[in-house]
Amino acid sequence: MSVARLELRGIAKAFGDLQVLGELSIAVGKGEFVSVLGPSGSGKSTIFKLLTGALRPDTGAMLFDGAPLQPDHRPFAFMPQRDALMDWRRIIDNTTLGLEVQGIGRTAARRRVAPLFAEFGLSGFEHHYPAQLSGGMRQRAALLRTVVQDKDMLLLDEPFGALDALTRADMQRWLETMWSRHGWTTLLVTHDVREAVLLSDRIYVLSARPGRVIAEVAVPLPRPRRTGAAVAAIEAGILDLLLSAPTQRT
């Protein structure tokens, strides 16, 4: 890896007396799928709030292609927890949301997303409302809304956390296929160890609050990945790490 696409150096963030992130350093290479894995309350979502500009770090540097992140230019497409689809917009208008904010006209925006509906398994549902779609379809629509913004990097915040186990496994496989095909640079935040192992090139394991990296795990398994002995071994190793880590509370 030469210059990382995204690099966080010594990022710390506290809310009052509560230290949420302590000296966090991670890097994501171009075309790489990296996960940040940690227990609840380890500040995983805070990382994304810092990246999208909703929060400012107390200390540390955030670099993109080697240059500090500019507040008015964020090269990220963000997918929040749950799907955050707007009930009042049809699926096609939900997926064009990012383009609309960028100032692209409705017709042009629709023309850009329309060809992607087939690949995302949403053909024929363009003019449905979110309430008419299943959980898995809603997540695919949310991901379509994310990738169509054509940003340099995807930020996925526990994207499948609200789905049932079966749908989640299905969506993980589907996301891996999509990622292999498109090579999106992706940072995924999750507390699901198997999800991280199945999807990632590398995994940063975070401690409990204040979140800091306690291990960096490479996953050199061939794709497409299926659950099996190799995945289970890495999964068990990470679980051991997480469970044996001293739980600090401040």
Partner: peptide, 14 residues
């Protein structure tokens, strides 16, 4: 308004 929706729209630069 749902927090996620607001955070999402803000992340798009609105």
């Amino acid at each position: 308004t749902a927090d996620e929706i607001e955070q999402l729209v803000a992340s798009m630069g609105a």
